[in-house]
Write a protein that binds this DNA or RNA. Structure first.
Lengths: 342, 342
DNA sequence: ATGTTTAATGAAAACGCTTTCATATGGAGA
DNA sequence: TCTCCATATGAAAGCGTTTTCATTAAACAT
């Protein structure tokens, strides 16, 4: 039924069957120009006939580059990360680079292991997608430094100062600050900040929120800066969280969130409580994802320029790979997309 | 700053520096038991000190398996596919397999190329995630057959009859049929079926819809079986589509959709038109994703058992890899999760 | 002390490809 | 006809591991 699963076909089999040397077969394989038309055709036909697939390991041994980029991502089922990965892969493909994606999970050990895996596969560079790759401690980031000693490392949504590490990120601080200011200027008195992660960019958003209040000389209360654990697949937790908060007397007339899903929860919370949006409660999301458009009214959200960031990241990478000197950091500005929720 | 980027470290460098042969270094690398404690410690310390990473290509050349599974997925930014990929990777990791994910795009050429890439990387098996990998024509699927001649191929959400190809899928036909029947039994007279893809499983859903009507002796009208191109990031298109349909006189009292995003569009359409859900319009989604829970009311949706399917797929694969005979097909039943929209 | 196992190590072949260098062939120009 | 180039091909070395087989050293039984 299936052709000879026992022994794997090699270049030698093709060589023998087509009556040329392995060197010539290799040339055909690599599209070298100095092979006679007919020879080439003959060899190719033999390859097809026998169902030959070159062995990338053997190939990689000889070559200095396999034109392959490693991509690391904590969790491909996170819509935001997944989109980023998609944009990046698309760009790489267009530039004739293969990509290998590894999902690492959120544990430090998983990240380290995945990066090792990629290093051992001799990728030309590694792309770390998402701020989860930035650990709190300097020590926790050492593995990135090690990797960067061997290949260029690109980071999306994070910023650090190692040699050979290039960062592309959005100014989440400014974007959140601006969003908050807008609410203040519209007369909101009790603004809640709600976050669901503790990553690098979550910290920047939080700082932006506080900065806005301070700049406008409003009181900053820890009671109004909240963290709420949510699964990405479940918003009921967040709704209940808000409900409890409200019942505990922490009422609010606006919410700034760190992610659209929390904003959706806020909208549903309002419906449940009989609050009218935007009259009684104004809501601002983050990421400007599909989720911002599924509710009624739709949600005003910060667009953090994912696609342009990804494009920039790949462009920088390609430049680095061709030996050009490149800036280590590239910052984008978020943009508030106004919809019915404010 | 960075240690010797020029020449790559090999096992020889470690061997030399630690005063043992490369064979011993290799043994340490592979955790062989027959190495003296002290020797092992010494070698390991040298490796760490020099920042050595083994070369997977060289390694792969010698070994017969690299315990690596290739995963193919048309588009990792599709939430459903991304979730599937995540579940699968998780399972594989737990079973000590590495995985390589390639996003192929929806073009046939991309799929072929990605599969070739994986084959050349000598993965132990390939997993094709999503029904997009099943082409309409027998000829279009030949590349899968070729791959299956070399390694086991697993398919999620599709079913075909090649040797060495194992399929895990959900009975979309029955699930859609059941959902439709429920609507009929609740008294719905004009049920619209709305789909946004033409894949294998989309066809099964459509057939299920028609079968339900026929079985209950209701008229089947092409006007009520609709296809609507939507981006996964944009629901306005679908809303407008419904709006136009309605204005053209194709009114309906229920909608069965092929994906939750269409159901969300239906809910928003109803809000726009002033139709009350579920009184004036009943809506059923598919996939039971987060999207089914973001609207008010929430959407009744078919849960197609993604997690169990993925688990089963990996289990079957591991069995196949260890040489056991396994059933070529494994079918799951969807389950209608009732919420406020009907 | 002697012979016999066992544990630890080294030498060298093998894995499947790329690539350099050398060689053969076939005109073009004299 | 002879030289000189360009083109097409082959032989063989090298890429960084793993692994088999042989060897040495240590431990044990007699």
């Amino acid at each position: 039924m299936m052709p000879d699963k026992n022994r794997k076909l090699t270049i030698y089999d093709i060589s023998e069957k087509s009556g040329v040397s392995i060197a010539t077969v290799s040339r055909v394989l690599n599209g070298a120009t100095n092979v006679k038309r007919e020879t080439k055709a003959a060899v190719e036909s033999v390859m097809r006939e026998m169902g030959y697939t070159p062995n990338a390991f053997a190939r990689g041994l000889g070559l200095d580059t396999m034109k392959t980029i490693g991509i690391l991502c904590a969790d491909s089922s996170d819509t935001y990360l997944a989109k980023a990965v998609y944009y990046i892969e698309e760009q790489l493909r267009e530039n004739n680079y293969d990509s290998l994606l590894c999902c690492t999970g959120y544990e430090a050990a998983g990240k380290r292991k995945a990066l090792d895996l990629l290093l051992s596969k001799k990728v030309d560079a590694a792309i770390l997608v998402g701020s989860t790759f930035l650990e709190a401690s300097e020590r926790g980031n050492k593995y990135i430094n090690c990797a960067a000693a061997q290949i260029p490392v690109m980071m999306l949504n994070a910023s650090m100062d190692y040699p050979n590490v290039y960062c592309v990120f959005c100014d989440d601080y400014a974007a959140t600050k601006q969003a908050t200011e807008r609410l203040i200027d519209r007369g909101c008195k009790k603004i809640l900040y709600l976050s669901n992660s503790k990553t690098y960019s979550a910290k920047k958003k939080r700082a932006g929120f506080i900065a806005a209040l301070e700049e406008r000389r409003r009181p900053v209360s820890e009671a109004y800066i909240r963290y709420c654990e949510t699964g990405r697949e479940d918003i009921t937790g967040a709704i209940e969280y808000l409900d409890k908060l409200w019942n505990d007397g922490i009422t609010f007339d606006a919410i700034v969130t760190a992610e659209d899903i929390l904003a959706v929860a806020a909208v549903k919370f309002a419906a449940k409580k009989g609050l009218s949006i935007p009259k009684d409660l104004k809501v601002i999301g983050y990421n400007n994802s599909l989720l911002a458009t599924v509710t009624s009214p739709e949600i005003t959200s910060v667009d953090n320029r994912l696609k342009p960031m990804c494009d920039q990241l790949v462009e920088t990478l390609l430049n680095v790979l061709s030996g050009r000197e490149m800036p280590k950091k590239c910052e984008f500005s978020g943009e508030l997309v106004i919809r019915g929720s404010i």
